[in-house]
Simulated scan of single mutants.
Amino acid sequence: MKRWLLLCALWLAQPVPIAAAQPGVLQPPDYRLAPREIASGVWLLEGANADFAPGNGCNIINTAFIDTGDGVVVINTGPSRLYGEQQRKAIATVTAAPVRLVLNLNLHPDYFFGNQAYADVGASALAGTIDGARREGAAYADNLYRLCGDWMRGTEPVPPAHALAPGRLTIGRHTLELVRLDGHTGDDLVVVDRSAGIVFAGGLVFRQRIPTTPHADIRRWLASLDRLQALLDESGARLLIPSHGPALGGAEAIAQTRGYLQWLDARLREAATQGRDLAEVLAMPVPASYAQWGAMPAEYLRNITHLYPAHEEAALKR
């Protein structure tokens, strides 16, 4: 309880920006989704590089869709029923093809809270993602309703309906490789569009954005980043799209995420060895490069509170 109260106090102490003063601030009920074609038949919808907030409609995720020539594949459905509906309308502005496959890359709410808009198709995900969405969906909904209010109206957590097995899948002109990794969550789905040369890395990779860690296992995450780098090299993909942060780029986002996780893990391990308490760790300065990333300071504070107790326990055992 003391940890939670301390986090709340630190969060409330942060200055709250005035929505009217922010350029590009959104107002319900319009996410202003604008599909951007990043390869032939592959379209991107880029979210804000920020934390959940009313000013961005809780839209902090990069979603995408692929017009395969034999139906549309949707990658992530966004943070709300409204987003899913507007995503589907955005798809219809560039193709008349029906939606054939909907993929949720992990169990976090902005990956699957738009699933209501695809009830006729039903979303697909790895088995662990389905279990996690069922287990935590109600708590996610409570949190996002509290954070983003009217943007969430009518949203109910609808877990993905179909379990996926890793492997290759050819749909129309596109060959997709579905790869199961882990570490960011228990089941992290990576989609490699080998035809377009694009890797959709999900939550394993963050570009210029503090990673989220509520389900993180740092050791396994780092191992998955190594495997992801090897996959990127082997596939010859030209783009790596993370689910959070600026969408377009390549392997530098893997290096950014790896560097941050290694730095964070070393900081927490050293602080625990020194016997520092949580308040002291939260007050330690952050390198200037990370201080400029999206979702600072809120996500960094959550990183510490998620991960530091395990380091304290390990230090006590030593």
Rank of each mutant, 00 (worst) to 15 (best):
G183P: 04
R134K: 13
S289Y: 11
Q27F: 13
L107A: 15
T68W: 05
W221M: 11
L261M: 12
G172E: 06
L264P: 02
G259Q: 05
G245S: 00
R135K: 15
D188K: 11
A123R: 08
L126K: 13
L316H: 11
Q262M: 13
S40E: 15
Y308R: 00
G154P: 07
W43D: 07
L7D: 11
S243I: 03
W221H: 15
E299D: 11
R88V: 01
E177D: 03
P246M: 00
L44S: 04
Q27P: 10
G128D: 03
L261F: 03
R36D: 13
V42L: 12
K2H: 13
D217W: 01
R180L: 13
T63I: 12
P17W: 09
D67C: 06
D233K: 08
S224Y: 03
S40V: 06
A237N: 13
Q208Y: 04
R220Q: 12
G128F: 07
A315V: 00
N62G: 01
I198P: 09
Y290V: 08
D150R: 14
Y83P: 06
R194D: 06
H162L: 12
A298M: 14
L101G: 02
G294N: 03
T170F: 02
N143K: 14
P166K: 04
I75Q: 00
A230Q: 15
M1G: 15
E85G: 10
L222N: 05
W43G: 06
V179M: 09
L10S: 07
V94K: 13
V72S: 06
N115D: 14
V94Y: 10
L169P: 02
V286I: 15
A125L: 10
L278Q: 08
Y83Q: 07
S195V: 00
D150H: 11
A125H: 10
R209W: 11
A125S: 10
R168S: 12
Q274D: 02
L307N: 01
G128V: 04
N56R: 03
A21H: 14
M152G: 05
D67Q: 08
P109H: 14
N59I: 07
N303T: 01
H306E: 03
G203T: 04
A96D: 14
R269P: 05
T273E: 09
T305Q: 07
L176D: 00
G41R: 09
G55F: 15
D182L: 11
R227D: 12
V25T: 15
G249Y: 00
G172K: 04
D217A: 07
L5V: 04
T63D: 12
A237Q: 12
G197E: 04
L10Y: 12
Y31D: 05
A117H: 10
A9E: 15
E280Y: 08
R220T: 15
D30R: 03
R168Q: 07
R227T: 13
G154R: 03
G41T: 05
V190W: 03
P160R: 05
P54A: 09
G167H: 03
A90L: 08
D188A: 07
R318C: 02
P17Y: 10
E280K: 07
D193M: 03
M284F: 08
P160W: 09
V191G: 01
P166W: 01
S80N: 05
T68Y: 05
D150S: 14
R81S: 14
I75H: 00
T95Q: 09
T273Q: 10
W293A: 05
A34W: 06
K317G: 02
W151Q: 10
G71I: 06
L307A: 02
V99A: 08
D150N: 12
D277C: 08
L5H: 10
H174F: 02
L82Y: 11
